[in-house]
């Protein structure tokens, strides 16, 4: 395998998918974030934690511009990061993934990883907009979320090992489903109450799911196309005759 080419196409595909994710968020998720932060501001005015003054709004619009601009950069960083994990998993699984070309293989892997490291953790710990989340519980919530992603991801790898060794393949899928269902009830829930309006929460979550799903689709598609075009597995060798 051509090491530098492999790394380059993995990073480029993750970066590109991340930028798409960030751009999409600006249109689909930002309106919900603005509404949620508006509620936060009203709460701060009501409790006297902040005053509704021109100075407040100057500072507010300044840091909101910083946060919104950060969507693209953070998307690029997160996309490159998750894309790197995607590349590592692809490197080990590319010979066993279904599909007769790399676009089909990467899309199949993107679907598997979307389910195991995004959808299943989301079901247990769904995304929340600002106004939901106590700063005092942030470390606990971050730990639980990361732990559930790791449990689901490693369980998928573990049950794949079982899948390879047994004749009744369906048992491996049932085993994974049963294990994750058990984990769903064993792991503690999000300790923070949801106080924001229900339509805000549901609208935000639907938009969040759509944009993250587009990220996984884009990551799979772009890496598949790049792999198909440049194939880092192929190397030229000179043989004596």
């Amino acid at each position: 395998m051509k090491t530098s080419l492999f790394i380059a196409i993995v990073l480029l595909s993750g970066f590109s998918a991340g930028v798409i994710h960030g751009l999409l968020n600006l249109f689909m998720v930002e309106p919900f974030l603005d509404t949620a932060i508006g509620i936060e501001n009203k709460n701060m005015f009501a409790t006297g934690e902040a005053a509704d003054t021109p100075d407040f709004w100057v500072e507010y619009y300044s840091y909101r511009a910083w946060q919104k601009g950060g969507q693209i950069l953070a998307g690029a960083i997160l996309g490159t990061s998750v894309g790197s994990l995607f590349g590592v998993v692809l490197a080990y699984s590319r010979n066993v993934l279904p599909g007769n070309n790399f676009v089909k293989k990467t899309l199949a892997l993107a679907l598997i990883m979307w389910i195991t490291v995004y959808v299943i953790p989301f079901v247990k710990y769904p995304a929340n907009p600002p106004t939901v989340g106590d700063p005092e519980t942030i470390v606990l919530r971050q730990t639980l979320y990361l732990a559930f992603i790791a449990i689901s991801g490693f369980a998928a790898v573990g049950f794949y090992q079982l899948y390879k060794r047994i004749d009744k393949k369906l048992l491996a899928f049932i085993g994974y489903g049963a294990f994750m269902t058990a984990m769903f009830f064993v792991m503690p829930g999000n300790p923070d109450p949801i106080t924001a309006p229900e339509d805000l929460i549901s609208g935000f979550r639907i938009s969040s799911v759509i944009t993250v799903s587009v990220f996984w689709l884009a990551a799979g598609l772009i890496l598949g196309v790049l792999w198909q075009k440049f194939n880092p597995d192929k190397i030229k060798q000179t043989t004596p005759q």
Partner: peptide, 13 residues
């Protein structure tokens, strides 16, 4: 603050 909006949008606590 820079990653705040993506953190929420991507599902991180």
């Amino acid at each position: 603050e820079l990653t705040h909006d993506m953190r929420h949008a991507a599902g991180f606590p």
